[in-house]
Simulated assay, not measured.
Amino acid sequence: MGPERKVDVPVYDLSLIKGIWEVRVKKYRQKQKKEQERVEKSALARIDQEWQYRIYCKTLKPTEKHQLHQYLERSTQPHTSTHNTLLLTGDQQQEENDLDHKNLIFRLDGDRWMDFPRELQWMTYLREWHIWGTRIRQLPDFLVLFTQLTVLEIAKNAITDLPPEIGKLAELRRLNVSYNRLSRVPPELGSCEKLERLDLAGNHNLSELPFELSSLKQLVHLDISENRFISIPICTLRMTSLQLLDLSNNQLTDLPQDMDRLEQLVTLFIHRNNLSYLPLCLANISTLKVIVVSGDELTCLPTKLCNSPDIKLIRLFDNTASEKRKKKKEEEKKKREKEKQRRWKEQKEEVKDSREKEFIEVYIGSLKDRDTVPFSTTKVSISCLL
């Protein structure tokens, strides 16, 4: 054997490498944060908005421009606005309030709309959006500018995603995104702590809610029906002000044993699921008045819940499971009929094949007695009516 060779194997301290990369990542994040703060404090966005506002004002009629200026003056000088209002009569004050409220609402409907109108981005004074029945797929980037928005009704559209910026709408109190195409809800929605009503029904691909929604302590109405939930989201049990909870038409198989954490719950919709029992803890909710459940698969009900005079237990016998069983029976019946028809056809074909076989045998037998064999033969089927 040759002389022994010494090989130098470098030894690295993994903790040292990890520390180096952690420092780099930390510096990079700090740099990103400073850049974001710089952009937010920059006057460029404000200047651009002012110029866009001036351009938009040129498209308005004199009366509309006057009303807009009046609103902006009142919003910046609340005390003066109150003083001027006191000088008006009751009818005049009501008319002015109605006019102001009407000017603060934006409405858009019709399937011809595939995007938001461009001039909407300069109407940041709006308080309500009502978008219905359009083909719009996503919310605009300038939504974050509408800091005074309290109502966002965008039901029955084609929206596939909610932007994370929705969490910056601090004044939002009502959000309706039902019957769209959502598959997820952004965790940033939990920052809208003044939210009182949340409708997410009929999105069909929605199967979970982020835990961050637990911070919605003022939420009183939650509708997540007609989706794909297999269990109640954990965040739901932490919404302590919840009064109405709609979980109908999902894929629930049981309810958690700590449902009584919803101490202010009044109405509970859990029909059209796969529930076989109701937990006893529901009877501990003193405010609970109505429970709607499907009765087909329900086999166990707490006696305390049934005998309670304060709770109306409504059982609907139209469970999805029953419909599935009925559909399955119909399919089996159709399958049996098809099988019967197939067998009848096979028997008919067997009879036909046997007749053809007999014909061929007789025909070939007749050829043996002939001197010449025909070049081709046409088989003719003759039926006689006697």
Rank of each mutant, 00 (worst) to 15 (best):
W344R: 14
E263A: 13
G2L: 12
K102F: 08
V177D: 00
D369E: 13
T320F: 01
E35M: 06
G167F: 06
D246P: 07
R54K: 12
S286K: 14
M114T: 14
V11W: 12
K156H: 11
Q251E: 11
L262A: 01
N176T: 06
H271M: 05
Q218M: 15
N274D: 13
T236D: 00
V23Y: 09
S75D: 11
W344S: 13
L120Y: 07
Q347D: 11
K156W: 09
T59Y: 04
R181H: 15
E4W: 12
A43I: 06
L252I: 04
R272M: 04
Y53T: 15
P164W: 08
D141V: 12
G133F: 01
A170R: 13
K61A: 09
D260W: 02
T378A: 09
T299G: 04
D310Y: 08
T240A: 06
P78H: 07
C192M: 09
K168Y: 12
V293Y: 03
R315I: 02
Q30H: 09
K334T: 10
K33V: 05
L162G: 04
L104E: 12
A283P: 05
I364C: 04
I159H: 06
K102L: 11
L282Q: 02
V11R: 14
H66F: 05
T150P: 05
M239T: 01
I314N: 09
N307H: 07
E188I: 03
L14Q: 14
